[in-house]
Design a protein around this nucleic acid. Structure first.
Lengths: 193, 193
DNA sequence: CGTCTATTTGAATGTACTCAAAAGCGGTGG
DNA sequence: CCACCGCTTTTGAGTACATTCAAATAGACG
């Protein structure tokens, strides 16, 4: 079963005892999505923790001028969740959308709370997962306040080669916070110089 | 005792049973610092979780050109930690410094791991604490990739009025990612217009 | 009171965006 | 197999946003 991928993913942080594994299996829903399908949209509450078994997704927000801004990409073994909406139980203001055909394992909020309350190992695992996400995101904040677009592009390229070779420049531009046009001039400069 | 402030802080997320409270008390070290004192500097491992009882601190990184970039401020009831260094046990690359005379409650890494292992409520509490920090930080990322400096300044003002009235414009400029000179022109424009 | 830091001002420069249009690329159907 | 369609990438001109550097002014702290 594909859930083994999720169990293995946890095991890298803190292994699950058999009962926790069993409970986890009973709480996960597998879902297959085509390219460009929405997992979440603004106005809707984020009711699931989403684990990527296969494929690639993005989380983005649309601003008042209609511009899209990518907050996160997720590939195999990543989680993608609007934490704010999930825990506050208020409507989300972001989209989660597939960039490729994807398979998710999803855990509903009530099921996750059940797991938290009966198996402390899930508090432990999700604490570690979010701590790691926080650390990476802090590096992104530092980049944003201290580097030029070119530096951010080079950093993205170096840090996420698996994403770099998988998604379009439009998506990368939206993630590092530049227009596609300007990213194009950066790329030109890098190849010529 | 001042530790009550820390216990109360946890209680807003998930209350501590008496034994956990007792163990926590035995693990905390109170420390008073003068203005401009360093709690952490690059090269040094971050060995403590720091809870602010009183005062104000900043975490910042110095780049290759010698410019400082503020990653975080912490006031009463906030935590300030270099999570990356704390968990990896590798040298930090940031400074944590007081902006005012401050009092901290500090938990050493070994003591925190003891608490995690004996009282799952700490996994729970710190999971929630870091989740909230992640959500706020994600809003900051969105700001950085989608807004002008003026918008970021106005957002900071609205969101952190308690900080806005407590720290200098140089510190705010470094946090929102602009030069002090340009922040000055933004402020001029806002007061005149 | 003197020193150190924070804030303001202005000119010149650099970085990034907007808008419009052309060129490239990949998939689909005829 | 080719023609067409939609989307991505490139190009360029003009403009807006933000930095650098230097210097003057204002505040804060011991």
């Amino acid at each position: 079963m594909d859930i083994q991928m999720l169990v293995d993913s946890f095991s890298r942080y803190w292994p699950l005892e058999p009962e926790a594994t069993k409970a986890l299996k009973e709480c996960t829903i597998q879902q297959v999505l085509k390219r460009r399908e929405l997992v979440l949209k603004p106005g809707e509450q984020c009711r699931h923790f989403n684990f990527v078994l296969h494929g690639c997704l993005k989380m983005y927000k649309v601003d008042d001028q209609g511009n899209r801004h990518n907050l996160q990409f997720a590939v195999e073994n990543d989680w993608i969740v609007d934490y704010g909406s999930f825990y506050s139980e208020e409507p989300s203001d972001v989209y989660i959308e597939t960039l490729e055909t994807s398979t998710l394992l999803r855990i509903r909020n009530k099921d996750l709370f059940y797991l938290y309350d009966h198996f402390p190992v899930f508090d432990r695992n999700f604490r570690i997962i979010i701590e790691n996400a926080f650390i990476e995101q802090q590096k992104r904040v530092l980049q944003n306040i201290s580097s030029t677009a070119e530096e951010r592009y080079l950093y993205f390229m170096k840090k996420y080669p698996h994403l770099f070779n998988r998604i379009s420049n439009v998506q990368i531009a939206s993630y590092i916070g530049v227009t596609p046009e300007f990213l194009s001039t950066i790329r030109k400069k890098l190849t010529s110089g």
